[in-house]
């Protein structure tokens, strides 16, 4: 059996007295879509931030393609091909959509001279193709800050694809998006996984979305991993239902 793309083992992260993650272990399989659910404040975003190197973890291990990454900084982890999008959408608001995509090109080259190159036409074409893919082609020359929240989410998703990651961590991709756009977004997430071969690891509150999307789901509650399994198993798991509804 080949090891998982991301292996999280016994990770603990506390902020002062609050333990946000306690003894969390999970696997993100290569080429799959893995889901992460749990009530608000259960530590999902903290785990994402730990994986991408936003903050150091207290103990445990995080491996990406077999390599320990829990001591690397954000930029280096991103250059390995492990990327996250933000719950509060983050785009470059004073730059137009095409520029947002161009600057999102992978930054794996280490030569300093690379900083002073121009963008070749095929890269600009690629940026425009991706904008078309997320349905923003008509807005490509608009300043990103003028887009609606939902459009900014789509733009951030396109930026992530431009970066050619091996795995993409999406923090609530459908939150704040109108229901008609949600289906289109799910379709695009599935296509990015199927056609571009990008492994997805998705935090999602919308049960319909995550059941439809993921092949394996982890559920967290109060900083700990509560359950894992296929969407059907998770849906029928008593502990998961209790965690969401607050029953004892």
């Amino acid at each position: 059996m080949t090891p998982a793309l991301i292996e999280v083992r016994n990770v603990r992260k506390a902020f002062g007295g609050v333990v946000a993650n306690r003894d969390v272990s999970l696997d993100v399989e290569r080429g799959r879509i893995t889901g992460l659910i749990g009530p608000n404040g259960s530590g999902k975003t903290t785990l994402f931030s730990s994986i991408v190197g936003q903050h150091p973890i207290d103990s445990g291990s995080i491996r990406f393609e077999g390599r320990e990454i829990s001591r690397l900084d954000v930029q280096r982890i991103a250059r390995l091909g492990l990327l996250r999008t933000f719950q509060q959408t983050r785009i470059f608001s004073k730059m137009d959509c095409v520029q947002n995509l161009l600057v999102s090109l992978p930054h794996r080259e280490t030569a300093w001279s690379h900083m002073f190159r121009r963008y070749p036409p095929e890269v600009i074409e690629k940026a425009e193709r991706l904008l078309e893919f997320v349905g923003l082609y008509a807005k490509r020359r608009l300043v990103a800050g003028s887009l609606s929240f939902g459009q900014q989410k789509l733009l951030e998703f396109a930026m992530a694809l431009m970066n050619e990651p091996k795995v993409l961590l999406l923090d609530e991709p459908t939150a704040g998006i109108n229901p008609t756009l949600v289906n289109a977004l799910i379709e695009r997430l599935k296509r990015s996984n199927r056609e571009f071969g990008i492994t997805l690891f998705v935090i999602e509150h919308n049960m319909r979305v995550i059941m439809n999307l993921a092949s394996r789901i982890y559920c967290m509650s109060r900083g700990e991993l509560l359950a894992s399994g296929s969407p059907a198993e998770i849906r029928d798991d008593r502990r998961v239902i209790d965690a969401y509804l607050g029953a004892q």
Partner: peptide, 20 residues
């Protein structure tokens, strides 16, 4: 590319770091 990179740092440096 230099210009877009420093513009990105201006708009959101954390996001720029997150992109590598």
């Amino acid at each position: 590319r230099f210009r877009l990179a420093i513009n990105a740092i201006r708009d959101d440096e954390d996001k720029a770091e997150a992109l590598g």
